[in-house]
Write a protein that binds this DNA or RNA. Structure first.
Lengths: 204, 204
DNA sequence: GTCTATAAGGCGATAGAC
DNA sequence: GTCTATCGCCTTATAGAC
């Protein structure tokens, strides 16, 4: 059991929020210091450079979400797994935050390679998870997909990422629904698809 | 025929590049001034504040893409229209740029409402265009979509936006292909779908 | 570990000469 | 229209006291 610094924890926690709301180029050590109630020099004690801070934030975020996703595997049913996975995405709605890795991915040109690698891992983890569920849906339920599982997983992840961004842009949480419905209906056999497609209808 | 300032044009042109590569918080008046070969004070002459510059950039970008999209309507065939539309997206590949409006959408918390409104219009224009093509595909070719046209259009636009971001993140242009294939196959009747789905296969 | 103090430079923006 | 000069503030980062 490793000792943890509560200040370091708070710095990391608030960095997750700042990165999700404003992005890497959108916040400063001063912003973070004021949120935590320390001086900027204290941040440098834990995270010598801003890039170090970003790397730690991405790793903490990915580890956190990774744990949540692995926890879903405990429950057997495919539909429930997907439903809980989508609930993880919905948690961002109404918070003016988007996925931290989606945010930083769009700032790729401002970030060092080690941070980009960590973001790539996050993307790959999600795509692998979705791909597996799609393959199970095909094998167990005879579902017909409009594309191969890996390719379809990529578009679904992209649609979810963009869904959060556009939900925030328009101030309409329902803008995530279309992407959610896409994954949901992909693991639902033809017969029982009625409710899913109706839920996917988006009011303009 | 309104007289145009060549300096203003150059400023706008380079701003489109800077916004697409680094984002709103990722470049400065100094960066822009050096690219154009003027002093920063000259930028303020044309665009008093950075927000003015961003608004003009979004409007120019949207007008430009809007013209390109409306030009597609001249050709009749649905498949060719979609192919040319996808070619517009592919133009970003290999340039380290993503869609300017996708980029700024992820920086929404740093932007004033009038800029956000312009970005929303850009999104709505794309979704309306895609929706119309999907509806035509359904009506004329009896295509079966996995979701209602408007909802499916939203996910496709999101997948394209995210496709550019992830293609740049991974340095793999093929990461846009899955999203492209999705729209392509949506306007292709069942029988002739063979090539489309094969093209969508993405190597990890 | 946290602070004060400061370095060294970048930021958007403005005044006023030419 | 474009420049020089400058303002006031913010930025990341470091040195060294406590």
């Amino acid at each position: 059991m490793k000792a943890v610094s509560p200040v370091r924890e708070q710095l990391l926690e608030h960095t997750l929020v700042l990165l999700g709301t404003r992005g890497y180029n959108g916040f400063s050590y001063r912003d973070l210091a004021e949120l935590v109630g320390v001086k900027t020099s204290s941040i440098h004690y834990y995270f010598p450079t801003k890039e170090d801070l970003a790397l730690a934030a991405v790793q903490a975020y990915a580890a956190n979400i990774g744990d949540s996703i692995r926890a879903l595997d405990a429950n057997g049913a495919l539909k429930e797994q997907v439903e809980q996975y989508l609930a993880l995405w919905r948690k961002n709605l109404g918070t003016s935050r988007v996925c931290l890795c989606g945010m930083l991915a769009s700032e790729a040109n401002s970030l060092p390679q080690n941070v980009l690698n960590a973001i790539q891992n996050f993307y790959s983890m999600h795509e692998a998870w979705i791909t597996q569920r799609l393959e199970r849906a095909v094998a167990e339920k005879g579902v017909k997909l409009p594309a191969p599982p890996a390719a379809y997983a990529m578009t679904i992840l992209g649609a979810l990422q963009s869904g959060l961004v556009s939900a925030r842009l328009f101030g309409k949480p329902c803008r995530l629904d279309a992407a959610s419905a896409m994954l949901r209906s992909a693991v639902t056999p033809e017969g029982s698809k009625q409710q899913a497609t109706e839920a996917a209808a988006v009011q303009s």
